[in-house]
Computed example of a mutant assay.
Amino acid sequence: MDLFSSAINTDRNLLPHGGTVNYLGQLFSHSETQHYFKELMENIDWKNDEAFIMGKHIITKRKVAWYGDNGYAYTYSNATKYALPWTKALLELREIAEQKTGTKFNSCLLNLYHNGDEGMAYHSDDEKSLLKNSPIASMSFGAERRFLFKHKQTKETISTFLENGSLLVMKDETQTHWLHRLPPTKKVHQARVNLTFRTMVIKS
Rank of each mutant, 00 (worst) to 15 (best):
I136Y: 13
F141W: 02
K150H: 12
A137I: 06
A143I: 00
M139C: 11
H123N: 03
M139Q: 13
K152F: 04
H123Q: 08
R146M: 13
K132V: 12
E156M: 08
K128T: 11
Y122A: 07
P135W: 15
E156I: 09
R145I: 10
I136H: 10
R146N: 11
S124V: 02
F141Y: 09
F141K: 01
E144S: 09
K132D: 02
E127S: 10
R146D: 05
D125F: 04
M139S: 01
A137D: 05
F141Q: 07
E144F: 00
F149D: 00
E156D: 07
F149E: 00
Y122C: 05
S129N: 07
F147H: 02
S129V: 11
T154E: 03
K128V: 12
R146C: 11
I136Q: 04
Y122P: 15
F149K: 00
Y122F: 15
F147A: 03
M139Y: 07
P135R: 15
K152S: 08
L131A: 06
Y122D: 07
T154Y: 01
H123K: 07
K152M: 04
S134R: 12
P135T: 13
L148G: 04
S138L: 02
Q153M: 13
E156N: 15
K150L: 10
L130H: 06
K155R: 14
Y122L: 09
K150N: 01
K128W: 05
A143Y: 11
M139T: 04
L130F: 11
F147G: 09
F141T: 05
S138D: 01
S138V: 02
T154L: 01
Q153N: 14
R145F: 10
K150P: 14
K128A: 13
S138K: 05
F147P: 09
S124H: 09
K132T: 11
D125C: 03
I136S: 00
S124L: 02
K152D: 03
F141M: 04
Q153D: 11
R145D: 12
S140T: 11
E127P: 10
G142E: 02
K150F: 04
G142M: 13
K155S: 13
P135K: 15
Y122G: 00
I136L: 08
L131N: 10
K150E: 12
A121C: 07
A121V: 09
I136N: 03
I136P: 03
N133R: 14
G142Y: 15
A143R: 12
K152Y: 05
S129H: 06
P135A: 13
G142Q: 05
T154S: 08
L130P: 00
H123V: 04
K128M: 12
K152G: 12
A137M: 06
F149T: 05
K132Q: 11
R146F: 12
L130A: 06
T154C: 03
